[in-house]
Structure formats: C-alpha cells, structure tokens
Simulated assay, not measured.
Amino acid sequence: MVFLRNSEKKTIQSYIKKLPSLLEKDYGKAKYYTPMEIRSTIVSNNLCVEDLRFAIAIFSNQKNFESYHQEIGENCDYESMRKEIGDTFFNGNSQFSVLDFSYVSFDFGGDFDGGAGFSGGDFDGGAGFSGGGDGGY
C-alpha cells in the first residue's frame, strides 16, 4: 500500500470539495465523468492539475481511468488508488462515487469544517455536503 502524502491529501480534499458542483454545472449530475471532462473542469477552474490522476480515480469509472492512463503512458493502478482514497476519505469504502460524498472523512487533520462524516477544520460545506469535519502512485 502506498500512503498519500499530505500535499496529495489536500489536493484530494480540494477535488472532493469543489469538483462535484463544478462537474455538475459543466456536464449535469452523473455517477461518473470522463477523464477529459474532469481534466477540462480542473483546468478551467484553476485547480491543481499535477494530481489529476486522483480526480480521475475519484470521479471516473475504472474502464475510462485505465483507457486514459494507457493513452497517456502513465502507469496508475485504479484499484489501489481507490483503496487508499477510500481508506482516507470514505471510511474504508473503495466503491464510493460522487453520490456518496456524505460519507467523506477528513480525520487525518485536513482543513475542513462541514459535511456529514467530517470532524473539524475550515471546510465550508460545498455541493452535496452538510454537517461538520476535519479535514506516490
């Protein structure tokens, strides 16, 4: 198992906080988005592009994730990334989808304060969130 670095955790927090509403605004509500939709939304909203693989692991399905990474020649393991993200943010649930964000956990000490399953920090809620929390490949 590869552990997420703090910088990756903060980027993933940002993706979880911002991308659901941005993707829905750009493409409508969906369980999954294509890697190019995710990339386009990240770029157009000036979010961190360096950890795009995590956003794609979160918001896309396995088939699209693997096709995208094969096309760009990057070796990423969808299942291990989802497991690590699930363990860190979704109470161990690696089968999460954008529709499951009420189960997000930022207990590793992030800067969030809002959303069901959260416990402390500066998170302000965001689309699909209600409540309070903390917020290598």
Rank of each mutant, 00 (worst) to 15 (best):
Gln13Ala: 03
Lys31Arg: 07
Asp122Thr: 08
Arg82Asn: 09
Gly128Asp: 14
Tyr103Pro: 00
Asn61Met: 06
Lys18Phe: 12
Gly73Met: 05
Asp100Gly: 13
Leu99Asp: 04
Gly92Pro: 14
Asp113Asn: 15
Tyr68Gly: 04
Phe129Asn: 06
Asn64Leu: 05
Gly135Val: 04
Gly136Pro: 09
Gly110Trp: 01
Glu24Phe: 11
Val43Ile: 11
Ile42Thr: 12
Gly120Thr: 04
Phe101Asn: 15
Asn91Ser: 15
Ser67Val: 12
Arg82Asp: 06
Ala116Ser: 15
Thr88Met: 05
Ala57Ser: 02
Lys83Met: 06
Tyr33Cys: 04
Ser130Met: 05
Ile12Cys: 08
Asn6Asp: 09
Asp77Arg: 00
Phe89Pro: 01
Ser130Lys: 01
Gln13Asn: 09
Arg5Asp: 14
Arg82Trp: 05
Phe106Thr: 11
Gln95Asp: 11
Lys18Gly: 08
Lys25Arg: 14
Phe129Ala: 07
Gly132Phe: 10
Gly120Ile: 02
Asn64Glu: 09
Leu47Glu: 12
Pro20Gly: 10
Tyr137Met: 11
Gly115Arg: 00
Tyr103Leu: 13
Ser102Asn: 13
Phe65Thr: 07
Ser14Gln: 12
Ser67Tyr: 07
Gln70Leu: 09
Ser119Glu: 06
Gly136Asp: 07
Asp107Thr: 11
Asp134Tyr: 04
Phe118Asp: 01
Lys31Met: 02
Ser80Asn: 13
Ser119Lys: 08
Gly133Asp: 09
Glu8Ala: 15
Lys17Glu: 13
Ser80Trp: 10
Ser7Glu: 02
Gln13Asp: 08
Glu50Asn: 15
Asp26Ala: 15
Ser21Thr: 10
Glu71Lys: 08
Gly115Met: 02
Glu66Gly: 01
Leu22His: 14
Met36Trp: 13
Phe65Met: 06
Tyr27Gly: 02
Val49Arg: 03
Gly110Pro: 03
Glu24Met: 13
Leu47Asp: 10
Ala127Val: 03
Gly109Met: 10
Phe90His: 07
Phe90Lys: 09
Asp107Glu: 12
Asn75Gly: 01
Ser119Gly: 10
Tyr78Met: 07
Asn6Pro: 10
Asp134Glu: 01
Asn6Gln: 01
Phe59Lys: 12
Ala57Arg: 01
Gly117Asp: 06
Thr34Asn: 13
Cys76Gly: 00
His69Met: 00
Ser97Val: 11
His69Leu: 01
Gly125Gln: 06
Gly117Glu: 02
Phe54Leu: 04
Gly92Glu: 12
Gly120Arg: 06
Lys25Gln: 14
Gly120Tyr: 02
Glu50Ile: 11
Gly128Pro: 14
Ile85Trp: 04
Glu66Arg: 03
Thr88Lys: 06
Gly73Leu: 04
Tyr32Gly: 03
Ile12Pro: 11
Asn91His: 13
Asp26Val: 06
Ile42Arg: 08
